[in-house]
Design a protein around this nucleic acid. Structure first.
Lengths: 146, 146
DNA sequence: CATTTCGTAACTTATTTAGTTGCGTGAACA
DNA sequence: TGTTCACGCAACTAAATAAGTTACGAAATG
């Protein structure tokens, strides 16, 4: 595939379900914070696979939102009280930025491209910021339905 | 792949280069609005293929931003004066919404999932709106570099 | 009527993600 | 101590999406 100086700007929010899985799981855990849950339990509830669960929750552990223990009675627990885990924490932990205006690998050969990149990147930067800000206003314990 | 009731919410901004191509091309055309350009010309400048160009610009034509003519001296032209084509017009024409909170195909079996969907969808709705608003503040003629 | 240019369908290739299997590691417990 | 349970991780498969490409039809111009 020959794509030369044209990946200049590229918006990147993947069309994946990781954020969905993470938020869903954490919201559930917020309803019963003292319970330890295994990947298998979570996977069954979420309709997916234990390995996928560990992959996603692993990132949340790296971000300090969860802890995991091996062995008997092991599994996953919230690392903080639910009220202190915001949707933004989860979003940022997964590194799924809407903006992430990729810097061009090579300097754009074209002045229009350069100006375009700057303009759009600026807008997306603002947007990203307000997205995180709004997500930060809600904690995982506020999302519960019943 | 077995993904049952879990596509509930899914953010969807594709990691494609269509918007980039569209904006780049329109910005260029804005610099010389009376010139008709062929897919081949545009493709060469953008480092891609004429068919790809027609695919993308076709959407802009459907949205009333461009016109295309077949035959000798045919090609693409802006349908309006450049100052009246905003970045938002282009963004919307390509139907590449950041938000696009997919409604769940099936009603979520789980109350947490339901509440989560509502909460996140609300936030994303707001974000989408402000994104479009900010893009609307810039026209393709303002993006030019030199 | 020959040429040019768009319109579109079909196909290939690359990338990304989810799903899956398998095995290693460490902790609990009998 | 040794079995079991649970995570950690690597490797593979399968599906979805997008770009690129080829080919051909349709319309407009000269």
């Amino acid at each position: 595939m020959l794509r030369e100086a044209k990946d200049a700007w590229r918006p990147t929010l993947k069309r994946n379900s990781r954020l969905s899985l993470a938020l869903h799981t954490l919201s559930h855990m917020a309803g019963n914070p003292d319970q330890t849950r295994t990947s298998a339990d979570i996977a069954e509830h979420a309709g997916t696979n234990p390995v996928v669960v560990r992959r996603v929750l692993g990132r949340l552990r790296e971000a300090g939102l969860l802890t995991s223990e091996k062995g008997h009675a092991g599994g996953w627990r919230l690392a903080r009280v639910p009220a202190e885990i915001s949707l933004a924490d989860v979003y940022l932990a997964l590194d799924e930025r809407i903006v992430a205006s990729d810097e061009p690998d090579d300097a754009p050969s074209c002045s229009v491209e350069h100006a375009l990149h700057k303009t759009v990147a600026g807008v997306l930067q603002d947007i990203e910021q307000s997205l995180v800000q709004k997500l930060a206003e809600t904690s995982i314990s506020e999302v519960r339905g019943s």
